[in-house]
Design a protein around this nucleic acid. Structure first.
Length: 302
DNA sequence: CGCCAGGCGGCTA
DNA sequence: TAGCCGCATGGC
């Protein structure tokens, strides 16, 4: 149990577009079930307290503390962002939003799948991928499937993935999983023997290495994966690599930027650079508040 | 039927 | 570098 937790609402955390493996268990959406990090767990908000089921204290300390971003002062984040009067409404609407620190590989594959796709279909695709290539888990008598490792997913052919309804993204996912499998392999072997130039080049796809790069280089490195453009790279950086200055611009954020800031509707790159200038290292939080407001309120542009 | 969805890759000027 | 088009799929 986490006592007296502020800035934490399951509905807002899990419905603000950053994750796809949490499902509501009650009508009020205070209780969710999630598949994360090879675990199945429940999160339940009761009054001021948050209850986690299915996770030991040790695992909570070792992984979920960071996953739920519990070391961060959201009070402070909001105080700074609220200096922009145009953001106040969105922040008030999503008081309980937090940015999860998810697994980079899962986030990368998930957001490749997200391009020009629908949220229910993304969820279904991830579930299918996991049920074929992921490890089986038992939770309260029910079977769940963890998201696969790069090695497991690299076994999938483009045709197999296409047959799962992933569309033209199947090729990107198969290729990306293979790139990551090789990157991990050669990164390990590097400690044992000198690598050839070709092998060395493959290490540049290792996500653990990419994650440590400064934001601009990190973005460029991610965009080398097939099916990854600026939007997907921004999502991976923000939702799994702790790059809080990232500002993914999708259709909903675009609507919010036009609606609140009078942005030019067609220029996505300009919205992105404006927001990064305006919000700095807190741009990612601003993005989440704006996304959630726009989608919940179904903002329509004239 | 046409339109669209948390875009991207490829081509053109 | 900006602007356009095709792309798999399925719901409306």
């Amino acid at each position: 149990m986490l006592k007296n937790v502020q800035h934490f609402h399951p509905k807002e955390i899990f419905e603000c577009g950053q994750c796809f493996r949490w499902t509501p268990l009650n009508e009020e959406k205070t209780k969710y079930l999630g598949v994360v990090h090879g675990c199945v767990l429940e999160v339940h908000l009761q009054g001021e307290d948050v209850y986690l089921h299915g996770v030991s204290k040790a695992l909570f300390q070792a992984y979920f503390l960071k996953y739920f971003d519990l070391d961060r002062s959201y009070q402070q984040v909001k105080e700074v962002l609220q200096r922009d009067p145009l953001l106040k409404k969105s922040i008030a609407h999503g008081e309980g939003i937090r940015i999860l620190q998810q697994d980079p590989f899962e986030t990368l594959i998930t957001f490749i799948l997200s391009s020009n796709n629908l949220i229910p279909k993304i969820k279904e695709g991830i579930k299918r991928i996991s049920s074929i290539y992921g490890e089986e888990m038992l939770f309260q008598g029910e079977i769940f499937y963890a998201f696969p490792t790069p090695e497991a997913l690299a076994k999938a052919t483009e045709e197999e993935l296409r047959a799962m309804g992933l569309g033209y993204r199947a090729k990107y996912i198969a290729k990306t999983a293979t790139l990551l499998k090789e990157a991990r392999r050669f990164t390990k072997e590097k400690k044992l023997r000198p690598l050839t130039k070709e092998e060395e080049a493959k290490c540049a796809y290792d996500l653990a290495w990419i994650q440590e790069l400064p934001e601009e280089e990190c973005l460029k490195a991610l965009m080398k994966f097939p099916g990854v453009g600026i939007k997907v790279a921004d999502c991976v950086m923000l939702f799994s690599m702790g790059k809080t200055g990232a500002f993914p611009v999708d259709v909903w954020v675009k609507k919010a930027m036009v609606y609140f800031y009078g942005a030019e509707p067609k220029s996505l790159p300009k919205m992105r650079s404006f927001a990064k200038e305006q919000f700095g290292s807190l741009a990612g939080f601003a993005q989440q508040y704006l996304f959630y407001y726009a989608r919940e309120e179904k903002i329509k542009l004239p």
